[in-house]
């Protein structure tokens, strides 16, 4: 496996909804073991970009490749199998199942497919990784908010993804939870996982990301390390300007 080639690359990715261009001619690469932050004001097309990568929406034009293989025209399940796994902006658990079964779903059907005892031990390992192993047999309805997020993360991790897409995974957490959450993602980063995260929490971006892509009105306006982009005047204008509009 070459390490110099990007794991994930977008070239000219575009998504139109009728007359609205939600994602406009977007290019970026994510290298192996890199944590890439996708940031920008509300409505700048970050979540839509994740939806394009994960196959929730087909791009109107442009290419998306996973280790050089085009995936832009594949349905979501194929993309998931090739190794792109995602969390959802609003946590989505499987309400009729136990915590363990939720995670097993990832282990059984994901990038690396397991079954039986192997899937179960793997799922338990992932629950331990996110710190929920003692609640494996709990019902999802009994969990606190951050624990539901943990379950979702464990489900995604259980599929052994090549790329992990986290859609505002830290949103809505209180300060203590936020600290735990950031620590958890840092651990994933230290394990060498490749991650794309859409995030609003600036502390998290500074402390977690190797690189950032800043979007505004669907287009990329800056790219670089967190410190570079966050001091970029155009980025500052995009954020503050949007605040004025709102």
């Amino acid at each position: 496996m070459r390490t110099d080639a990007p794991v994930l690359s977008l070239r000219g990715a575009t998504k139109r909804f009728g007359g609205l261009v939600a994602v406009n001619d977007l290019d970026f690469d994510v290298a192996e073991h890199e944590v890439m932050g996708l940031i920008g004001p509300n409505g700048s097309g970050k979540s839509t970009t994740l939806n394009l990568i994960s196959g929730a929406l087909p791009p109107t034009s442009g290419g998306i490749a996973l280790r050089g293989t085009p995936i832009e025209n594949l349905p979501a399940q194929e993309i998931a199998r090739k190794g792109v796994a995602r969390t959802f902006q609003l946590v989505r658990l499987l309400p009729s199942m136990s915590v363990l079964d939720n995670v097993r779903a990832g282990a059984v059907f994901g990038h690396r497919r397991r079954w039986g005892a192997e899937a179960e031990t793997h799922a338990l390992r992932m629950l331990k990784l996110v710190g929920l192993d003692r609640r494996a047999h709990a019902h999802t309805g009994e969990l606190t908010y951050i624990d539901t997020k943990r379950v979702e993360l464990a489900r995604v991790l259980a599929s052994d993804p090549e790329v992990l897409l986290l859609d505002e995974w830290l949103a809505g957490l209180n300060p203590t939870e936020l600290e735990e959450g950031i620590a958890l993602i840092r651990r994933l980063r230290d394990d060498g996982r490749t991650i794309v995260l859409v995030e609003h929490v600036m502390d998290a971006i500074r402390s977690l990301c190797d690189a950032c892509v800043v979007m505004s009105s669907g287009a990329k306006i800056a790219e670089g390390t967190p410190d570079e982009v966050l001091s970029d005047p155009e980025v500052i204008r995009a954020y503050l300007g949007d605040d004025d509009d709102a």
Partner: peptide, 23 residues
């Protein structure tokens, strides 16, 4: 696996698809 896949689909088809299930 099929039975498990269907339970997941019944709960949330979107999650099922994104977990790699051909729903």
């Amino acid at each position: 696996r099929l039975g498990f896949a269907l339970r997941i689909i019944g709960d949330d088809e979107e999650v099922a698809r994104h977990s790699g299930i051909n729903t």
